[in-house]
């Protein structure tokens, strides 16, 4: 629990715990054999198998599309909820709304999944279209919107509250203020919310599995069923691709954030020096 040797080695041990399983996945994706845990020669055979796997490519395409659509919808619904939470103050039902809007985030997914299945298969609501892609999209939007709401709400609350008033004072009508001042200022939170929603949707198995019909197999649903029907190094190859893409994206975002932070600090320091 201090800066010394003990603390450092604990840091290292936990990081090994976090990364060892992933590293193993990556290593054995290059095996030439059939077994997922032994290197029988090095080859790219399973990557080729991945490329030839039409079922998997279809599922990936569906997941990407669904992720993008759900993330976009979640940002719209979630930001509107955040505006209601952060700017409306108290009105009858405001506490109920605050509770409801973040509830999807804290309830177990099985419960949310079951509740939405009951909605989409309800005999009195045939116009919802039953289970399928639309149902999964709805579920993902509902779940992700809660995260977006929290993210955007906290940004709205820490945003300089005079900015919007200053814009009004300078003659800008209220609705326009929202789009020319508020949205650009909270843009980083919106972007983060979109990415988080996209990831949640790409990663979700429970909701997608409960709400899927035969025509709507997302990538996690397909991977899950493959894990039940014997392991193949093809999944390792898929994991390697996913981990690589995600790591590049996350590290790039991280770099961007750090350098922006550094630039801002330098600018502030420069301004301090030439006070006036």
């Amino acid at each position: 629990m201090n800066r010394g040797w003990g603390g450092r080695s604990w840091l290292l041990i936990v990081f090994v715990f976090l990364y060892l399983p992933i590293t193993c996945l990556l290593v054995f994706s290059f095996t030439g054999g059939e077994i997922t845990t032994r290197l029988d020669g090095v080859s790219l055979r399973w990557y080729r198998a991945l490329l030839d796997d039409d079922e998997l490519k279809r599922a990936l395409g569906l997941s990407l599309t669904l992720g993008a659509l759900a993330a976009t919808a979640a940002v719209i619904v979630g930001s509107a909820a955040a505006v209601v939470l952060a700017r409306f103050g108290a009105y009858p039902g405001s506490r109920l709304f605050a509770g409801l809007s973040t509830a999807p985030m804290v309830l177990p997914e099985v419960v949310i999944g079951l509740s939405l299945v009951l909605l989409f298969t309800h005999p009195l609501l045939p116009w919802l279209g039953g289970r399928g892609v639309v149902a999964i999209w709805t579920a993902h939007t509902t779940l992700s919107a809660a995260y977006v709401a929290v993210l955007v709400q906290s940004r709205l609350l820490e945003m300089d509250r005079w900015l919007e008033e200053a814009a009004l004072d300078l003659g800008c009508p209220p609705l326009k203020v929202f789009f020319v001042i508020t949205v650009p200022v909270i843009a980083p939170a919106l972007a983060a919310g979109w990415l988080l929603s996209f990831t949640l949707s790409m990663d979700d198995f429970v909701l997608a599995a409960m709400l899927s019909d035969p025509g709507s197999t997302t990538l996690p649903v397909l991977v899950f069923s493959r894990l039940h029907h014997g392991l193949k190094p093809e999944i390792n190859a898929l994991a390697t691709v996913v981990v690589t893409v995600v790591s590049i994206a996350v590290i790039a975002a991280h770099r961007l954030m750090l350098s922006a932070q550094r630039r801002r600090m330098q600018a502030v320091a420069a301004a301090r020096r030439q006070i006036g």
Binding site: D160, W162, E165, A166, L168, L170, G171, I181, V185
Partner: peptide
Amino acid sequence: LPPHRRPTNMMFQSYALFPH
């Protein structure tokens, strides 16, 4: 008159300069 139609302008305490 709503604020955006008033012929007054305010300089805010924290200046409220638009950061973007």
